[in-house]
Amino acid sequence: MQRVNMIMAESPGLITICLLGYLLSAECTVFLDHENANKILNRPKRYNSGKLEEFVQGNLERECMEEKCSFEEAREVFENTERTTEFWKQYVDGDQCESNPCLNGGSCKDDINSYECWCPFGFEGKNCELDVTCNIKNGRCEQFCKNSADNKVVCSCTEGYRLAENQKSCEPAVPFPCGRVSVSQTSKLTRAETVFPDVDYVNSTEAETILDNITQSTQSFNDFTRVVGGEDAKPGQFPWQVVLNGKVDAFCGGSIVNEKWIVTAAHCVETGVKITVVAGEHNIEETEHTEQKRNVIRIIPHHNYNAAINKYNHDIALLELDEPLVLNSYVTPICIADKEYTNIFLKFGSGYVSGWGRVFHKGRSALVLQYLRVPLVDRATCLRSTKFTIYNNMFCAGFHEGGRDSCQGDSGGPHVTEVEGTSFLTGIISWGEECAMKGKYGIYTKVSRYVNWIKEKTKLT
Score class of each variant (00 low, 15 high):
398 G>A: 05
296 V>Y: 01
233 A>C: 05
317 A>V: 03
191 R>S: 14
409 G>D: 05
284 I>E: 06
321 L>Q: 00
210 I>Y: 06
94 G>H: 12
31 F>I: 15
319 L>F: 03
171 E>Q: 12
407 C>L: 07
378 D>F: 02
138 N>Y: 06
276 T>K: 07
333 P>Q: 03
269 V>F: 05
25 S>A: 09
114 S>N: 08
195 V>R: 12
235 P>C: 03
212 D>K: 07
107 S>K: 09
59 N>W: 06
173 A>S: 11
110 D>A: 15
425 L>H: 01
218 T>M: 07
447 V>K: 00
102 C>K: 01
311 K>G: 05
11 S>M: 14
246 G>D: 06
86 E>W: 06
248 V>M: 07
274 K>S: 07
201 Y>T: 14
40 I>L: 13
171 E>N: 07
25 S>H: 04
417 T>I: 05
91 Y>P: 06
223 D>S: 12
361 H>D: 15
289 H>V: 13
20 L>A: 04
412 G>M: 12
325 L>R: 01
93 D>C: 03
254 G>Q: 00
457 K>Y: 14
311 K>M: 07
127 N>A: 04
16 T>S: 06
456 E>K: 08
229 G>F: 14
93 D>Y: 07
19 L>P: 02
115 Y>N: 01
212 D>N: 10
203 N>W: 07
266 A>M: 04
183 V>C: 05
311 K>D: 03
177 P>V: 04
416 V>Y: 12
382 C>G: 02
67 E>I: 05
5 N>V: 15
354 S>D: 01
316 I>G: 01
373 R>I: 05
433 E>W: 05
76 E>W: 05
178 C>T: 01
397 A>Y: 02
165 E>Q: 12
226 R>F: 07
228 V>H: 08
386 T>N: 12
80 N>S: 14
352 Y>L: 10
22 Y>M: 13
95 D>A: 09
413 G>D: 05
255 S>Y: 02
313 N>G: 06
109 K>I: 06
149 A>E: 14
449 R>C: 14
323 E>D: 09
445 T>C: 03
61 E>Q: 10
386 T>P: 04
233 A>Y: 07
137 K>P: 06
157 C>D: 01
196 F>W: 13
95 D>V: 05
212 D>C: 07
156 S>W: 11
422 T>K: 05
51 K>C: 04
252 C>V: 01
130 L>N: 11
333 P>C: 02
143 Q>P: 00
122 G>R: 04
155 C>H: 01
142 E>N: 04
273 V>G: 10
263 V>K: 00
200 D>S: 13
190 T>Q: 13
301 P>V: 10
190 T>Y: 08
54 E>D: 11
167 Q>F: 10
125 G>P: 00
361 H>Y: 12
33 D>W: 07
290 T>D: 04
319 L>K: 00
296 V>H: 01
204 S>Q: 05
400 H>E: 13
193 E>P: 15
10 E>A: 15
377 V>K: 04
351 G>C: 03
303 H>V: 06
362 K>T: 09
155 C>Q: 00
224 F>G: 11
96 Q>M: 10
386 T>A: 11
157 C>I: 01
152 K>I: 08
384 R>S: 10
116 E>R: 02
50 G>T: 15
334 I>R: 00
350 S>G: 09
393 N>Y: 06
55 F>Q: 15
241 Q>E: 03
260 K>R: 13
384 R>K: 13
354 S>M: 12
259 E>K: 07
213 N>L: 06
377 V>P: 02
108 C>V: 01
197 P>D: 08
157 C>W: 01
185 Q>F: 15
418 E>G: 04
377 V>T: 05
57 Q>Y: 09
282 H>F: 08
340 E>F: 13
432 G>T: 12
269 V>W: 04
213 N>F: 06
30 V>G: 15
163 L>M: 05
226 R>H: 14
92 V>A: 15
168 K>W: 10
326 V>E: 10
33 D>Q: 06
286 E>Y: 10
363 G>R: 06
430 S>K: 02
337 A>T: 03
243 V>L: 09
303 H>Q: 11
193 E>W: 10
454 I>F: 01
163 L>N: 03
210 I>M: 09
342 T>N: 03
55 F>A: 15
457 K>E: 10
309 I>R: 10
89 K>P: 15
282 H>G: 09
232 D>T: 11
152 K>F: 09
371 Y>L: 10
319 L>N: 01
330 Y>I: 03
457 K>G: 05
15 I>L: 07
281 E>G: 12
278 V>S: 07
401 E>L: 12
208 E>D: 12
349 G>S: 07
363 G>A: 07
314 H>W: 07
195 V>Y: 15
306 N>F: 05
85 T>C: 04
257 V>G: 01
145 C>M: 02
220 S>P: 13
319 L>E: 00
100 N>Q: 10
86 E>D: 09
263 V>N: 01
177 P>Y: 01
175 P>Q: 06
405 D>Y: 12
318 L>Q: 00
312 Y>L: 07
177 P>C: 03
190 T>R: 09
331 V>A: 06
438 K>Y: 06
451 V>P: 00
259 E>V: 06
11 S>E: 05
115 Y>S: 02
231 E>C: 10
275 I>L: 11
407 C>V: 06
333 P>F: 00
324 P>C: 03
93 D>I: 07
367 L>V: 09
360 F>Q: 08
381 T>I: 12
397 A>I: 02
39 K>H: 10
357 G>R: 15
99 S>M: 10
35 E>R: 09
79 E>F: 08
252 C>F: 01
215 T>V: 10
13 G>M: 10
73 E>R: 06
126 K>H: 09
225 T>F: 07
381 T>D: 13
163 L>T: 04
455 K>T: 07
105 G>S: 05
318 L>P: 00
402 G>L: 12
48 N>H: 11
199 V>E: 12
62 R>L: 10
200 D>V: 13
453 W>I: 00
228 V>C: 10
